[in-house]
Design a protein around this nucleic acid. Structure first.
Lengths: 196, 196
DNA sequence: TCAAGATTTTACCGATTGGTACACAGGAGC
DNA sequence: GCTCCTGTGTACCAATCGGTAAAATCTTGA
């Protein structure tokens, strides 16, 4: 048989997609083998730790992507308003305009939540911190920035759930558009409305 | 052995909790037997269709609860603003202030999505229609009502994801409180801000 | 040409999966 | 007492699960 010389890194995208589609438990080794074209032997050659190592590698890659494409620009970008706007663009692209599910969010709800709990927590905590900081730099008060950041993350995750549940990806784009307006309006107009 | 004379309906709550905790696939018959105290024989006596029938029965009950406690008051309640406010109270109670996950939302993201796709879709579509209608009756324009309804559902679902992911149930209550303010403010103040 | 290392195939393992079959227990009506 | 009927417990099934072992194959460098 021909040698495939597969790279570990090029296995990550199909693995990620598989975990997104089926979840951690239901993505069986048989399915993984079928999708990647690799037998168990090869899979365990690249990932001696089995499925768990595969999932962790996928989460590593996701972490890295968001850190580089979203979190860092939010924290360090010279123009916070632009960083926030670009976050929405990146998010829309990443989630394929609602056709793709957030693996981290899905794992948070799934049975395997305990196994990856810390990574899931870190992912959302990082995002939340970075976004809140950008909003503060954009002029929102710390309290407003914190609340709006949480609300933004919740809306993104909820939009993915709804888009999937209603089988209508466009819901995601519409909700993201509303979000963009609210974030772009800035603190000036909204400071008048009381917080509670 | 003593006869338990278990009722089918009294099996639904533990089954629902089990599916919420583990998801459909990972809630094994062994686990179900352990939690309900019933052997396979009894379980298949009440649910000849196996796990799938159990899940459908649970979804039926959830549907019924929301129809009675949330959807119908939204559609037919004499005071739409009060119905919306009471929806938030009911939702907070149902999801145990963020400590409980939405089974329908979790199934929407999970591997089993295709198996229950229509029921999941119907659940959210019913909710969305009922809420949008109440908002219209409360004075929002049809377009605003539709958008706000979607946004509300997304925020609720996303809040559950975040509360679970960050292991902080209080996030749910805080996001629900913000939501309450926005919904209670009514269309008057918000009609000035452009939609896009 | 040949050895060394990397990759892949194949066969196999024990455990667990959802599901079936059936013998058995207990109460209700006669 | 007897017989239904509703539950229940248990043994069993093939299929699949994640994972292991090792032989076989390929690539590479000397």
């Amino acid at each position: 048989m021909a040698k495939r010389v597969a790279e570990r890194t090029e296995l990550l995208p199909p693995l990620a997609e598989l975990f997104r589609e089926y979840g951690f438990e239901a993505a069986s080794l048989a399915l993984i083998g079928e999708r990647t074209g690799l037998g168990k032997g090869s899979l365990y050659h690249f990932f001696p730790g089995g499925k768990e190592e595969m999932a962790n590698a996928v989460l590593d890659e996701i972490d890295g992507w968001f850190e580089h494409e979203v979190f860092r620009p939010l924290r360090e970008g010279p123009d916070p308003n632009r960083a926030v706007a670009e976050m929405l663009v990146a998010v829309d692209a990443y989630f394929r305009s609602g056709r793709r599910v957030c693996l981290v969010g899905a794992l948070a709800l799934a049975e395997t939540r305990n196994r990856f709990a810390e990574r899931i927590k870190a992912y959302f905590a990082d995002w939340d911190r970075a976004l809140a900081r950008a909003l503060e730099r954009a002029g929102w008060s710390p309290e407003e920035a914190a609340a709006l950041s949480r609300e933004t993350l919740a809306l993104i995750q909820g939009a993915l759930v709804l888009a999937r549940a209603l089988d209508d990806p466009e819901i995601f784009g519409r909700l993201l558009a509303n979000l963009k307006v609210r974030l772009a309006l800035g603190p000036a107009q909204s400071s008048s409305r009381g917080q509670g």
